[in-house]
Design a binder for these strands. Structure first.
Lengths: 147, 147
DNA sequence: TTAAGTGCAAAATCTTTGCAAATGT
DNA sequence: ACATTTGCAAAGATTTTGCACTTAA
């Protein structure tokens, strides 16, 4: 199962004509291990052995290829998460709900959720939607249970 | 009508116990004159006579008081717009749709639009929603008419 | 072998902080 | 007069760029 995951990462890099380097595999396994988006500062702190500049370049490359997507949290900080399988180099599927917990600061990407149809004023031609919500995530909500 | 607007700005500052200074009135009249949110870089370029640091402080103060609200565009850049009348120091009403035009880069705050009710997975306790859309605004859409 | 990727140094930006001078009340 | 607010200088943080060295293919 772990082997399989590793292979998946290498296949992913192959697919996008990116070399399978240590730093890139590290980033992939890191992001895959979390169900929430990770902020760039956090990534830097976790993967101290990767140069900060290299991290920038890896994240940018991955985003361009549609391997990960970037979402800004309430502070305008970039957070990164693996794209769902629906993402492609062409079509970027990050039109889901991003839930920003005000307590633990985690950003949850709720892929499964369907956005209800939105009607815009006349003239606007939307190509994509992203919905942000903030509040308490299940874990923090539980911790505050009963006020 | 213009006089009235100026008075409105002064009243607004009074209401929030902020001194009526030149820079602050400038920012208010600037932001009020546009129906779209303005990015901080743009504000700096437009109001070159206001010190950059002063602008930071004014924008922060206004945001804290609920006079303006901040919205991040697709590039993670902060954009500012006047709050609708519904905003207060306590309750911040920026739960409307922000439309980010991919051509002219303008950010439209579509206050009037009601967000459809969103149901979240069990456990999430949302306190606020913000919806972003990107695509073509009416003006740019018109310019591209007929492909 | 060689094109792509990394790491380091350094530049360019962006944002915050401290303090003296200016300004509104 | 006095507390705020401003502007400048300078520190801190973030992001980008250039280039020599390393590494995957």
């Amino acid at each position: 199962m772990h082997k399989k995951a590793a292979n998946t990462f290498e296949a992913l890099l192959d697919k996008h004509h990116l070399k399978k380097t240590g730093p890139r595999l590290q980033v992939l396994s890191m992001l895959s291990s979390k169900k929430v988006a990770t902020s760039q500062p956090d990534l830097e702190n976790i993967m101290v052995d990767i140069d900060r500049v290299t991290l920038y370049r890896i994240l940018n490359a991955f985003e361009e290829k549609g391997i990960i997507h970037k979402v800004f949290d309430l502070n305008g900080t970039a957070n990164y998460a693996m794209c769902s399988s629906k993402c492609g180099e062409d079509h970027h599927h990050d039109e889901h709900l991003h839930f920003n917990c005000t307590t633990c600061k985690n950003v949850y990407c709720l892929d499964e959720l369907e956005l209800p149809p939105i009607s815009l004023p006349k003239g606007f031609k939307p190509t994509g939607f992203t919905l942000y919500a903030n509040g308490l995530c299940p874990k923090c909500s539980l911790a505050t249970e009963g006020k």
